[in-house]
Design a binder for these strands. Sequence first.
DNA 1: TCTGGGGTCCTAGGACCC
DNA 2: TCTGGGGTCCTAGGACCC
Length: 419
Amino acid sequence: MFALADCNNFFVSCERVFRPDLIGRPVVVLSRNDGCAIARSNEAKALGIKMGDPYFKLKDIIARNSVTIFSSNMALYADFSRRVRSVLREAAPQIEVYSIDEAFLDMRGVANVDFDTFAKGLSSRCQRLTGIPVSVGVAPTKTLAKIAAELCKSYPKLQGGCFMHRAADIEKVLRKYPIEDVWGIGRRSAPRLRAQGITSAQDFRMQSEDWVRRRMGINGVRTWRELHGIPAIGFDSVAEPHKSICNSRSFATEIYDLGELSEQVAKFAAMTAEKLREQGSVCSRLTVFAATNRFHTADIQQCGHITLPLIEPTDSTIDIVRIARAALSEVYVRGAGYKKAGVIASDIIPREGTIVSMFNAEHNARHQRLMTAIDDINRHTGGSGIAIASEGMSEIKANSRHRSPRYTTSWDELPTVKL
DNA sequence: TCTGGGGTCCTAGGACCC
DNA sequence: TCTGGGGTCCTAGGACCC
């Protein structure tokens, strides 16, 4: 068996831990720049607020229904994510962290356990120890565990935990389960399947494997097998190093000036280099992109990107910033108002064992010592101690008018308590 | 006025080899 | 009229996930 623990409306639930007055009321968490809705309480979902809806289009509905909104507070959510994971780790031999709000538990080889009691117990333990409501589904495959966890959200009677394993029960659930809600069936495939009369997970399961393979490739077959209770998706308890690392942002207002844009790109490059060092990797390719506001169709539209192969793989902030800035000047077009830019590192390999040119050995050794020192200092100062001069002194422009305090991670932001 | 930020894997087609 | 039969590697784009 596999279990999936899925935090309910995760970002909203984090905010509610410190604002219990908001339990039972509509709450929305917004993306960076207060751009889109990225988390909604059940009450907000009931009002018709969709994932990804732009905030400015929601203002009416928010005002009419006194919806509480928050700018995203990733420091807070990351901390709660860590707390929930630590509860999950005690409950299973292995866990696979799938995202900030979900983790799979490997229950293979776990015997003499009533999985229904286990699921409900784990859910209530998470709630008690972290304040976050968590749905726990247990089933023979990851895809079915996802569905079991989803059921908990619709049926409060399940008390946060659902063990789904009898063939007859699975079929009964899949008959009512919309095809587009199945893990692995995306927004492209779902309409195609519906057009062929396949509207439920059970309809999909009844097709032949060969039919699925022809239309949806190997990934479709994996989903099909998983729905039949045959595990087809691996379980990875150790996080592999990333194969690509991207840092990008949308800006609060358009940037026209190359110098100003260059500072932002230098910051993205520096963040990328830091993440490379964090996972002990170097990259051999660097992509820089910059794009104008795609919604302003009347303006000049520019979406430039360039990928440079690096002669020598590197994780040095100095090298990566220099290359990124040079790349940006290649794609930059005068007169365009840039709304978003980013840096992507790819062709990532472990730093250990990479071959360095003898002519660069000295350069590399110096950079490595310097980067180690910078990382140490920044760790102690909370991130912004030392930067490369070309990053400039300004912060990346952002609007976050509704952010809550960093309750659990910052001494400076604790609300004052009046005694 | 105002529209997020990350990732992974697969596949088809082109360039090249004999 | 008609033009072999294998390979490999790389890349861009698609599809999916949160």
